[in-house]
Design a protein around this nucleic acid. Structure first.
Length: 214
DNA sequence: TGCCAGGCCGGGT
DNA sequence: ACCCGGCATGGC
């Protein structure tokens, strides 16, 4: 079976098992972007607490996060872990947003995908997964998000490319699926759900909906 | 109780 | 071009 066929089958199996995932859980594109930085190597439950702190303090906006003192910001996002480095990364993102797009996400997303992705990657603290998460889930742009779950699931089903770099795995999906923002959105969300609920490290999964493929 | 979580950077080889 | 240590809280 071709990899293209496999990917479609995998998505359909996941969708049937879990239903639509309705990602990203956030009230605004800006919240998505900040959440994408906060969730770096961090449990989403912890990120929710940090986001709640920012909302409660009324500082979850480009203007407020642009002017807030970095130590103060770090205090608010403590529950997300790595709070000092993440405060720095959020400030880097805000400085870049105001220098290049007048502090406006709408203006930022009016730029073309490949150019914007490259520029996002130039921000210290925004790597490939964070950039793609912002582009896909905040900007609704067709770029596939790869994360550790994606690689673990592919690996367990012996579908991980030998060249396993981020861009190689990303191309595996993008080259073998229709360029469809909604599909990219829900597919990645399904993979995260599978990784969270079933496909755990050092444990074989009896109930994995993908086992029919083995 | 230890292991893990929706990564990324910087320095060393 | 890889490899590794550092970053840190909270849930299960």
């Amino acid at each position: 079976m071709s990899i293209s066929k496999d990917l479609k089958v995998i998505y359909e199996l996941l969708y049937k098992a879990f239903g639509p995932r309705n990602w990203w859980p956030a009230d605004s594109p800006f919240e998505v972007a900040i959440g994408a930085i906060l969730t770096q190597n961090t449990n989403w439950k912890n990120v929710e607490k940090a986001i709640a702190n920012l909302k409660k303090a009324n500082i979850l906006s480009p203007e407020e996060l642009h002017k807030i003192d970095i130590k103060n910001l770090a205090e608010h996002i403590k529950p997300a872990g790595y709070f000092n480095i993440k405060a720095k990364r959020i400030k880097n993102f805000m400085n870049w947003l105001f220098e290049n797009y007048d502090g406006s996400l709408d203006q930022m997303f009016s730029e073309g995908l490949s150019s914007l992705r490259e520029n996002l990657l130039s921000v210290n603290g925004i790597g490939a997964e964070t950039a793609d998460s912002i582009l896909l889930y905040a900007g609704e742009m067709p770029t596939f998000v790869i994360d550790s779950y994606t690689c673990r699931i592919l690996s367990r089903h012996e579908m991980l490319p030998d060249e396993g770099s981020y861009d190689d795995v990303k191309s595996l999906f993008e080259d073998n699926l229709p360029e469809d923002t909604q599909l990219y959105n829900d597919f990645h969300a399904q993979l995260v759900h599978l990784g969270n609920q079933f496909c755990k490290p050092k444990r074989k999964c009896e109930e994995c909906p993908l086992n029919v493929l083995l």
